[in-house]
Amino acid sequence: MTSIAQPMLQFIAAAPEGEVTTAQVVAELDRCRKIIATTAATLRRRKLIESPARGVYRITQAGRDWLASGRTIASGQGRRRIERTNGLRERAWWLMRELRKFTVADLLTTLADGSERDAHGNLGRYLSVLEQAGVVQRMRRRVPGAAVTSNGHILWWLKRDLGRMAPVWRQRHRTVYDPNSGDVLALASADAAVTGAEGGHHE
């Protein structure tokens, strides 16, 4: 939160009918338009102000209540913003939903940057448990690999799209947790799950 958020809110509240333009805020607070726009976005996100037209800000009842309560705007008060999907499995889940049919090689070509430790094994194990939970299914057809001795890549199909959030493999409980519905998916055969999924790394 920028330090001008509180003065900006007070200025808007003090204006006739609680409505000001960007130019007025710029003149009053002596900051550039960009900072004013960013601060306005933050205030709007908290629903303390609204924007009835482009470049016009109006205080909301929530904004007046905020000032009346004597509270000061500071960082960390709002709810957590976007849940970024950073882990390889989360990003792979996003891509699986997009591609529907894929190989581990397809996922890695798009997502891996070389800094991951055993990215191939990681996704192979993940897909294996998802298969046990009935979320993905391997196709009979394999995609040919480049190596002379390669058995080809397993072609996977996303059978059940659980939702935006990636299912989580809970190793201790040997279950797959679906954060979208809150369900816990049991594995079809628990023993077969964790050990090597891909049958070697030959391409």
Binding site: I82, R84, T85, N86, A92, W94, L95, T110, L111, R164
Partner: peptide, 9 residues
Amino acid sequence: LHNWAAEAG
């Protein structure tokens, strides 16, 4: 696009 979008959700 896939590379970025998967990261940005």
